[in-house]
Simulated scan of single mutants.
Amino acid sequence: MSGTRTLCCHVTTATLSFAIIYLIVNVLNLVGIILMVSLDKEAFSVPYYESKATRGHRVFDISTNILMLVMMSISAVLVLFSKRKGPMFVLPFVLMMFVELSLSFLSLFDGAWGLPGTTSYRDMLQAVKSQMRVDRLNEEEIGHFTMWYSVLFMVDILLKVYVLQVSMRCFYALKAERMAAVIVDTGNTVTVKLPSYDEALKMKAEDTPPTYHEA
């Protein structure tokens, strides 16, 4: 994790920018979920893979989504104080990025693992069919849709990996700065004021310590 610059800015500045963006996105997703639940818009608040789920499962899924968004928002807020408080305030954001990246890979196998505010392949396919007002896409349309979804998914994964790498470099950079500051603060220096040449000449013989003889 060497180097303290990424692209055109310091890793601390980049991590702070990413944290602000994540905070805004998470708050918007959280507000959207709360509004959908309060307005009882079940068709929009429940993904396609949950269309046949029980009410208890839906409540559990909504609760876990809200908890995930709250934790991600808190980790982003902590980054805002990392410059003054130290590298440990970046660590929760790094851990949440690990969790988000893991869930993104798991969503390929099951849409239920998808992150709150993101859509799975099946949900996106249903949205496209609803937009085109058709019940089924032909092979060419399915091929184009799969290609575009794969490209966007890989771009999203690469961006998350980049944010994770930058946040980890920020953690080590802040840790190195904190260690350097501690070494400077705790360094012991001894200063001795020596007499000048004229003062040394004026010193009397009795000012010198007495000599000791064996009895």
Rank of each mutant, 00 (worst) to 15 (best):
S104D: 12
F60V: 11
S75M: 13
V94T: 10
V163C: 06
Y149N: 01
Q126F: 11
N26E: 02
L16D: 10
W113M: 01
M72T: 14
T119Q: 15
F81Q: 04
I157L: 13
L152A: 15
Y121G: 06
F153Y: 09
A215L: 10
I66Y: 11
A112S: 08
P195E: 01
V59H: 12
I24P: 02
F153I: 08
R136F: 05
A127S: 14
H10D: 14
Y212S: 10
T12M: 11
L108W: 07
M97W: 07
F105I: 10
D135G: 13
D40W: 15
M203G: 05
T6D: 08
F145D: 02
V46W: 04
S82K: 01
L39Q: 13
E141W: 00
K129T: 04
R133L: 07
G3R: 12
P47I: 01
T191P: 03
S82Q: 01
V184D: 02
P195C: 01
V134E: 06
I62H: 15
L39P: 02
Y212G: 14
A173K: 07
N138W: 00
C170G: 11
S130P: 07
V151M: 07
F145P: 01
E140L: 01
E140C: 05
E139A: 09
A215D: 11
A205E: 08
S63Y: 09
I74W: 10
M71E: 13
V25L: 14
M147R: 06
T189V: 02
Y121I: 12
S102W: 01
S167K: 00
V166C: 04
W113S: 06
G117L: 15
L194H: 01
T119I: 09
K85H: 04
F98A: 13
I62K: 15
E100T: 09
W113K: 04
V70N: 07
A200G: 04
S196Y: 00
L80G: 09
M168W: 05
S107C: 04
H57F: 13
M1Y: 14
Y162F: 10
E139S: 04
P210S: 02
T208R: 15
M88D: 05
C170S: 08
M147D: 13
K193R: 02
A176E: 03
D207H: 11
E141R: 05
V46A: 07
L108A: 08
Y172M: 08
K175V: 04
A112N: 13
V77S: 05
K83M: 11
L16I: 06
K193F: 05
R136S: 11
